[in-house]
């Protein structure tokens, strides 16, 4: 399952709830305002650390750039993808579940 989160973890519990249901094989992609979850040194960084360390957490690069977050500064283990990468994640790890 590919899960997407599109809200800031500082605003809603969507990221925390998603992570609680990621299971052992799920992938997480943060998009739109969800990309603030990829900031390093935050509460979300700690929440994400497990699955990020296993290479299961991604963030959408164009949404980072639009918001002034340097892709080089995201939390350890979080992988930056473009829209083509988003598509590939759905192909490789679908179905898709949006944590809207």
């Amino acid at each position: 399952m590919l899960h997407t989160v599109n809200k800031s973890p500082l605003q809603t519990n969507d990221l925390a709830s998603c992570l609680g249901h990621l299971g052992t094989d799920g992938r997480l992609l943060m998009i739109e305002d969800g990309v603030y979850g990829a900031l390093s040194g935050t509460e979300a960084t700690r929440q994400l650390a497990g699955p990020a360390g296993e290479g299961r957490v991604y963030v959408l690069g164009p949404d980072l750039e639009a918001r002034g977050v340097d892709a080089g500064t995201v939390a350890d283990g979080v992988q930056v993808v473009d829209y083509a990468g988003f598509v590939q994640l759905v192909v490789d790890h679908g179905p898709h579940q949006a944590w809207v």
Binding site: A84, F86, Q88, V91
Partner: peptide
């Protein structure tokens, strides 16, 4: 987001 995703999917031959 949906537009950019759709465009990328089509460009990849989906």
């Amino acid at each position: 987001s949906a537009y950019l995703f759709t465009k990328a999917a089509l460009e990849q031959g989906h």
